[in-house]
């Protein structure tokens, strides 16, 4: 009995060496970005790999004020907040209708929304861009908010529908008997009951919107979001690495914070859809 167990343990210990190296590589970006962001340009040229000796926040100041990352940051915050709110609102309404209410073509509509997963933005790049132009949404934040909502909606609707479908029907029926209007049922019953799913979606959609670059490049061409700003900062041969690193820290900090606080929620949200029922 004890022999195989001992052998198991040896295999697991042997495996933990490469697993540790892999783990180190996963946190390396944090070291890379912070370490280089604190070097000045000369310090970086003299010692590119070593630990910073004379840390300064000069790069953050430059990025924030001269490289216009204050504007980019503001754009990202506005657009992400707007899109996440819109996504929660729209998907909760749709999820309520699809999971609880009974009406013709219910499955068809659910199918259409879910099937639009098969149409990523690359597949409709040209006509999508023309639509944005035709609706006079080019270079507007509201245009980017609507675009994000449209492209991240199917998963949100799917999750809200699945979540509401699992709630006991009696909840709604009881509220209805008491004479509540459907809108009231949604506001007073479904929204509060849906909090766990809405929180998960809020976090995941924040990640998606904040991290996006393609839709943002298309829709918001004059102004920039943070990710477009960082991409632009990375010139081919003359990249100012310390400045780029400072921009990376600015762009990643909100996400890292979110990850640290809500790690469990994120993990659970990602795993949904894979294994359920």
């Amino acid at each position: 009995m004890s022999k195989p167990a001992k052998r198991d343990r040896r295999i697991l210990w042997a495996a933990s060496v490469p697993m540790m190296l892999l783990a180190l590589s996963c946190v390396y970006p944090i070291y890379f970005a912070i370490n280089n962001a604190l070097k000045d340009r000369k310090g970086y040229i003299l010692d590119r790999f070593g630990l910073v000796t004379d840390p300064s926040i000069e790069n953050f100041v430059t990025a924030w004020s001269r490289a216009r990352f204050d504007e980019y940051f503001f754009n990202s915050v506005t657009v992400t907040a707007g899109a996440v709110l819109a996504l929660l609102l729209v998907s909760s309404l749709a999820g309520f209708a699809l999971a609880v209410l009974r009406f013709p073509a219910r499955k068809l509509i659910f199918g259409v929304i879910l099937a639009s997963l098969m149409i990523p933005v690359q597949v409709v790049l040209v006509p999508f861009y023309q639509t944005i132009v035709a609706l006079e949404l080019l270079n507007t934040r509201i245009g980017l908010i609507l675009s994000y909502t449209a492209f991240f909606l199917p998963f949100s609707t799917y999750l809200m529908t699945a979540f509401y479908a699992a709630l006991p029907r009696e909840l709604v029926d009881a509220a209805r008997v008491d004479g509540a209007k459907f809108l009231q049922v949604w506001w007073y019953v479904m929204l509060p009951m849906g909090k766990p799913a809405l929180l998960t979606l809020g976090i995941l959609n924040t990640l998606y919107c904040w991290n996006d670059v393609l839709i943002s490049l298309l829709v918001l061409q004059d102004e920039r979001t943070l990710m477009v700003g960082i991409a632009a900062l990375r010139g081919e041969y003359t990249t100012n690495v310390p400045l780029l690193s400072a921009a990376i820290v600015l762009g990643a900090a909100p996400i890292v914070l979110l990850y640290v606080i809500f790690q469990r929620k994120i993990v659970a949200g990602i795993a949904t859809g894979a294994v359920k029922g």
Binding site: P29, F32, N211, V213, I230, V256
Partner: peptide
């Protein structure tokens, strides 16, 4: 959880 832009830049 990091953006592909950040990964790419690094």
């Amino acid at each position: 959880v990091l953006s592909s832009v950040i990964i790419g830049a690094i």
